[in-house]
Nucleic acid binder design. Sequence first.
DNA 1: TTCAAATAGGATAACAATAGTCTTATTTTA
DNA 2: TAAAATAAGACTATTGTTATCCTATTTGAA
Lengths: 151, 151
Amino acid sequence: MLKLSKKVEYGILATQYIATKNGETVSAKEIAERMELSFDFLSKTLQALMKNGIISSQQGIHGGYKLSKSPDQISLTDIIHSLEERITIVNCLSPGDESCDKMDNCTLRNPFHVIQLKIDDLFTEMTIQHLLPNNDKLYSLDLSIKGTPNG
Amino acid sequence: MLKLSKKVEYGILATQYIATKNGETVSAKEIAERMELSFDFLSKTLQALMKNGIISSQQGIHGGYKLSKSPDQISLTDIIHSLEERITIVNCLSPGDESCDKMDNCTLRNPFHVIQLKIDDLFTEMTIQHLLPNNDKLYSLDLSIKGTPNG
DNA sequence: TTCAAATAGGATAACAATAGTCTTATTTTA
DNA sequence: TAAAATAAGACTATTGTTATCCTATTTGAA
Ligand code: FES
Ligand code: FES
């Protein structure tokens, strides 16, 4: 419950990896090997990111991928939206959903919408820039950390 | 992705329904009928809430459930923790998980932990009290709403 | 011109998680 | 003793996720 999909994890990892290569074209094979991810699955992910303008691709023998924007212009929400259709904590918060109409007695829409907007904010405020190695900006993010992550 | 389970939805709805009955014992049958939920599945949910001290049960012919605490003392996190094991956006944020050790090249733990803590906060700050009808406290919550939820 | 290495993309299989159902036992009161 | 309720385990069905397979296309270089 409330878990990110592997697709999104792959997407974030790959985008971050490409970002470290600063402009160089990186092949899916290289990313898969370095990150120890399934090549086929990663490829799907990269293709989706490409379609959504996060990265651009170069076909052919020396092809690969590079970022379309600078790392601080790519939010986690950008990546998530490229890779997933349903991203709301309940279906009835998705555009076009009619389940609320059927459930007369459900009064959770407003409260859940309050939470949904905040969750969206969290992923929007964090960018690929924040994920890069030796980054000191992570801790100055609005969503500042309260404990020590690694123990 | 990032979706609440039906179990949790049922749990929140049922707890909120019981809260509106202010102290009365309410049967699972009544909740299932009024909320149009599967009786069997709802029963499982109520039993789990009971085991975790959110509600108390009375067996026998006039039995049912009532709250163990006041609505403002029951957070959504209390309910979620009663009903779900894995509640982190990535597995490696769960206690005892070793997947980070295997993934040398994954640098997402700290950033994800930052987001995780904030998500936990959202569900902790919202209580059953906030869900009750004609409630004006929802909009004064720290996690204040930015748009109009219903359109 | 041919080959190798790369992306593009559809189809499908394997697996896991979720949701729902069924059955039986136990508890309580009338 | 019967009825109505909770308790709980087993099982099934459905859905969603993850991974794999296969073929086509693109590009550059030998
Ligand atoms: S079905 Fe829409 S809020 Fe519950
Ligand atoms: S495996 Fe732990 S952060 Fe990615």
